[in-house]
Structure formats: C-alpha cells, structure tokens
Design a protein around this nucleic acid. Structure first.
Lengths: 139, 139
DNA sequence: CAGGATCCCGCTAGATACTG
DNA sequence: CAGTATCTAGCGGGATCCTG
C-alpha cells in the first residue's frame, strides 16, 4: 500500500507528528504508553536471562505484575494488541491457553520501558532523600 | 551480546527495589513518572538545539505543552520538584519570574522521556496501521 | 506573572459475580 | 484458565475565581 520507503515515512512523520500539540495523534499515543501497567507489561514480556521466547501466559503475567486487577491487565493487553505492540495467541487446549508476546514494534518500545523501570529502581534512594530534604525544609 | 548490560548491572547493584512488587516504593515512583505530563515536561526542559540552559518560565512551559491545565502543570511541577527532578527558582522581579530547570537527576530521566516521546511520534503510522487492520479484522 | 483555592463532573480503577 | 459483565466509589482533572 505505501509507495514510500520507511525512511521517507519517518522523515514525513517527523514533521507531521508532534506530541507537544494537543490534537496530535502522537499525544494520545504518548498518553497510552505513559502508563505504569504498559511499562510493567512490556518490561515483563520479552526475553529474560535463560528464556528463549519472552511469551507469557495470562496467569503468569498477572502473577508477575503484583497488584494488577484482571480488568486492568486485560484492558491494557487488549489496547497493546490493537496497537500492534503485542500478539495474543489462543491455543485451544482445555482449559484454553492464551499467550502474549511482543511484536517487533513492541520490542523496540520495551527497551525504553525497561530503562524507565530500571531508572525508577536505581534512583529510588536519591528520590527518597530529596523528598525528605524537601519536606523538612518546607515543613 | 555483551556479558552484562548496563541495566543488568544496575539491577544487580540495587536488588532491594523491584517495581514488579506492589508494595515497593519504586512502583509508586514508576507510576509517578509514567505520566504524559511528566514525559512532556521533561522533554520540554533541558537544552534544545541552540539553547544553552534549558530553563523555562512557567508561562513558556504552559505554552509548549499545549492543552495542559494550570492545575496539572503546577501539580506536576511541584511533584517533580519534591522528587528532586527539577529546580524551581523565583526571581523577585515585579511581576515575579519563576523558572524551572532540570537537575542532574532529572536530566538522566529526560533522555529516556525524549526517547519515549520520539518513539510515539516515529511509530505513529505503524500504530495507526495496526489499529485499522485490527479493527477491520474484528469488525 | 505565577500560581492558590474551590467546586464539581466524569470516568476509570477496583471489587464482585458469572462463563466458555 | 482466561476472561466478560456490572456496579460503584473515589479521585483525577477541568473550569472558575481569587491573590501576592
């Protein structure tokens, strides 16, 4: 369908999309992926040490993302699937088996999401220290 | 593949925090920074091409982040300041001048946030295409 | 100019119950 | 197992008005 190369599309996209603009579609996309569950799901999927495929079953995902409700997990997964970031594969065993995996697109975002998650964990102490200092100073 | 990535080394160094756990402080921190306004504010602050200091005034920020309400902008800035990601400097001119700038901590996060924002803009077309294909297939 | 304070609506997350 | 359906409470977030 597109008679344009990927590079050309990217070049066009650079001028067409700007998340600083309220009406821009990329603003909505940014809003979608700026979600803790998105970050955690993407971080959980994909290959960890030792694993070959990063595919996970629904129950396994809900176990890893401690505290997520079924609703939010399903909802987030559906939206990620719709946006082409994850694939949903149903194996008609009984009971049914559903596995989720990252697409190439999802994989490209996963790296950043793991970076964010890693940042939060790595700088937690700094942030905690800043908060205490800030709170006592303004107390 | 390198024997150990930077993320893996960080994870090893800080085993105490794990955002996958519901009660972990880093989960709350992840939730905080997983916010579209945080992403946009951090992306807006910091040096652009040509600029020396990335400091911005309140009004300039609200102009760049089209569609943000005063409440959310102030609220987000306060929380970022409390967490030590931005500094708030009041110059007692009349009328008063308030400028916001990134701390070193904020700067380290900014790079990732710009990455996320850039990703959203760069892959908008892919996502849009996936959505259409998905919607027509499930129609 | 850079907010603080207040009111209030919407929607979304969470809990619960049910199903193929 | 992997969801769907429904209901509700809570709060995120916008609109508005006010101030140093």
């Amino acid at each position: 369908m597109p008679s344009m190369s990927a590079a050309e599309r990217r070049a066009q996209a650079k001028v067409e999309y700007d998340a600083f603009l309220a009406g821009c579609p990329s603003r909505q996309l940014l809003d979608r992926i700026s979600d803790k569950w998105v970050a955690l799901i993407l971080a959980a999927l994909g290959t960890d040490e030792g694993e070959v495929s990063g595919a996970l079953r629904y129950s396994e995902l809900s176990r890893r993302l401690a505290g997520v409700s079924q609703k939010m997990l399903t909802q987030t997964l559906r939206s990620l699937e719709r946006d082409g970031l994850v694939t949903r594969e149903v194996t008609p065993t009984v009971p049914v088996t559903v596995t989720y995996a990252l697409t190439d697109l999802g994989l490209s975002l996963q790296e950043m999401m793991r970076g964010i998650k890693g940042w939060a964990e790595a700088h937690m102490d700094d942030v905690l220290a800043h908060r205490q200092e800030h709170d006592t100073r303004t107390a």
